[in-house]
């Protein structure tokens, strides 16, 4: 009933506009650059530097700069090799764990938000229960029971426990979108439920879904680092958290072997920090109200 004097601007194509602001957003660019650089290192590093991260190959406790770029551990393992392999598993955990959590969270959120009624009530209950369970404690218990643990298994655990908040967020967004008239119109066009969700609702929150994935990615990386650090990390393989765990276990701090724990620390902080900075940047790109004018 309201007719205000709106200034309707024939805006440019959506995609073009998003890209326009994306390329001008410093936070997004800096964040993306750091993540990409780390990713390149994680992929190319182990290939170019073909040294096993666990083998004892050098003089123990060597400082960086000599035969080994980042020095060696107390046992003579190559720190640089450990670092690039660790970075690789960090991305693996993030991608797999974050991706899994995103998929489960979105499916649960979409279905609960769109179907409503008892389906919503049950899914919501499950979500809320998982949300209040101290995830880390459960992870610790599960991890402690498994004798052989790989990076993949770790990622699976993290993925299956970190989706609840994503589900809640997606559900809330879906609820508001599902009541919009264009969803009714799709129903009146005989479109099936699943197609409505994927073709009508999801495209409207694509930016939101993307940001959810980024946050889940960062969360998974942190969770993995925490598990590894307290010694429940992969039993076969290398990770940044495991490096720190070993460094602490063998008193690297007291012995002054800083090159053993500083690189993994910087690695984790850089990747997670850059992801979060990226997220803030993306928020500004997608949300016109946050755009700096």
């Amino acid at each position: 009933m309201t007719q205000t004097d709106q200034i309707v601007l024939p805006a440019k194509r959506r995609g073009g506009e998003t890209l326009h602001f994306a390329l001008r957003n410093k936070k997004l660019l800096v964040g993306a650059f750091v993540v990409l650089a780390a990713l390149v290192l994680a992929i190319a590093g182990p290939i170019l530097h073909d040294v096993s991260p666990t083998e004892y190959i050098g003089v123990p406790g060597q400082a960086p700069g000599g035969d080994h770029l980042l020095g060696t551990t107390m046992f003579g393992q190559d720190v640089y090799s450990q670092f690039v392999h660790g970075l690789r598993s960090t991305f693996l955990v993030g991608l797999l764990g974050g991706g899994l959590a995103a998929v489960v969270g979105m499916v649960v959120g979409f279905v609960a938000g769109y179907r409503g009624g008892w389906v919503d009530e049950i899914l919501n209950m499950v979500t809320n229960i998982l949300l209040v369970i101290p995830t880390l404690a459960v992870l610790i218990i599960i991890a402690a029971y498994l004798k052989v643990r790989g990076v993949m298994v770790e990622a699976l655990f993290i993925g299956f426990t970190s989706w609840p908040w994503a589900a809640r967020a997606v559900r809330a967004q879906t609820l508001t979108l599902a009541s919009r008239d264009f969803v009714d119109l799709a129903r009146l066009s005989g479109v099936r439920t699943w197609k409505i969700i994927t073709r009508e609702i999801a495209p409207n929150m694509s930016s939101y879904l993307f940001m959810t994935f980024i946050l889940l990615f960062g969360g998974a990386v942190l969770a993995a680092a925490t598990l590894d650090f307290i010694g429940l990390g992969p039993t076969d393989g290398m990770s940044l958290g495991l490096m720190m765990n070993n460094a602490v276990k063998w008193s690297a701090l007291q012995l002054g072997l800083w090159w053993w724990f500083v690189p993994p620390g910087i690695g984790i902080t850089a990747v997670v920090g850059a992801l979060y900075v990226m997220n803030v940047g993306l928020d500004e790109v997608f949300n016109p109200r946050l755009r700096e004018t």
Partner: peptide
Amino acid sequence: YYRSVQGVFQDPFSCYNPVF
């Protein structure tokens, strides 16, 4: 049913998916 019975709603702007 929808082949023969259809509807038009109040807000024309919200009847279109803004992305498409």
